[in-house]
Design a protein around this nucleic acid. Structure first.
Lengths: 212, 212
DNA sequence: CATTAAAAGTATACACTGTTTACATTAAAC
DNA sequence: GTTTAATGTAAACAGTGTATACTTTTAATG
């Protein structure tokens, strides 16, 4: 049997796993991607063929592992938002704004369990996990930097960029949340069930305001 | 559906509880109000001094009970929104709009666990609970009727009232969600931690739009 | 090297959980 | 007043998160 480097993968028949910490996160991510967000710590241990107590050598509690998985979510999320900027960098402000909004919503819709883990109370206090918080801040930063650019070119009003970012965040988070929780089925029927179309229409109205 | 009776109908030393179904909901509400949203079904049975299996005579699963509790939440929520209309009925459109927004946010901030139960995936499919869905629709209806009034008096643009309601809902839900999940601590510091002040400022900007 | 200390596994146990089953008691219906 | 349906109990099952004591392997040190 081939003995693989311990850095890359687990050794097939050794007492030690080799890289259990990473493997836990990876397997947790897989569970989440499959919609099995209620996976148990023991289930995860079984999937990795280790004893129930083994993961505790790397994560003090289940919540600590969830925090690590949520953190990975923010890494991917930040990348997705950054990529939307790259893609739309030669286009107009409307397109730039919508590109990021679309990237945001797509992440939520395509990874609802991950999004929920990142934004609801499975991890009640993010302050307990500094690197999680740092990564979530970086996601927010993608938004604020876009807002600042929009203000610079005179597309957005000159207001406190943080507050303006919050306004956009609340808008897109609220929409994403309501969609992935299945609370707007009756509205989606009107648009033929096309989430992106609904989002585009709403965001355009959001930009312009609703005052007559 | 009517409110759960507040009277305790339990007879002191009888084999039968008397009104266990209502008592379960009431006790569940109390747990929620105390922030103990992770209460177990058995914990609830213990609090009511009945055996672990007793609640199953009234609720097929724990989720069914949670749905009933969520439904009560929407009843109270609808009342709170309706009351905000009553209070502001002789005032101007700005006040009316803000009054409802304030009522919405106050409900979420004062009952975060209840709000979460109503709006996240503890009850994944609301369609399985028709009366829950009906009550949640009534909450939404409070919003749409206000929107229609605002359009009638020419305060809001003439757009599809459902879509406009969705826009407002996403705004206020997004904000409420981010606040109760503790995701905007850094913004709150700027306003001295006053949630209502932050909300008022944001909602005003929301109305006007952010386009220059 | 050989020895030892630290790291990372195992096995087992504890107090829980949601839920099911078989049975007991009571209230309601005929 | 008897029967039946509703509503309780007790006990059990499989599963959970986590703690503890012990074993095996790896890394570090003289």
């Amino acid at each position: 049997m081939t003995r693989v480097s311990k850095k890359n993968a687990k050794k097939s028949d050794s007492y030690h796993h080799g890289n259990l910490a990473d493997a836990c996160i990876r397997t947790g991510l897989e569970f989440l991607a499959k919609g099995r967000s209620d996976f148990s710590f023991r289930e995860l241990a079984r999937a990795l063929k280790v004893s129930p107590g083994a993961p505790y050598k790397h994560f003090e509690t289940k919540e600590v592992l969830l925090a690590a998985i949520a953190e990975q979510g923010f890494v991917i999320f930040t990348e997705a938002l950054a990529e939307s900027k790259e893609i739309s960098k030669d286009k107009g402000p409307h397109e730039k704004f919508h590109a990021m909004g679309e990237a945001y919503l797509n992440f939520a819709v395509n990874n609802p369990d991950h999004y929920r883990l990142m934004f609801t109370d499975a991890i009640p206090d993010h302050d307990l996990y500094p690197s999680l918080k740092q990564n979530s801040m970086q996601s927010f930063q993608q938004l604020t930097s876009m807002v600042e650019e929009m203000q610079d070119i005179g597309f957005f009003k000159n207001q406190d960029p943080i507050e303006q970012s919050m306004l956009i965040w609340a808008h897109v988070h609220g929409l994403s949340s309501l969609i992935i929780e299945g609370r707007i089925g009756f509205v989606l029927e009107q648009t033929g069930g096309d989430v992106q179309q609904l989002k585009a229409g709403m965001s355009e109205k959001f930009l312009a305001g609703i005052l007559a």
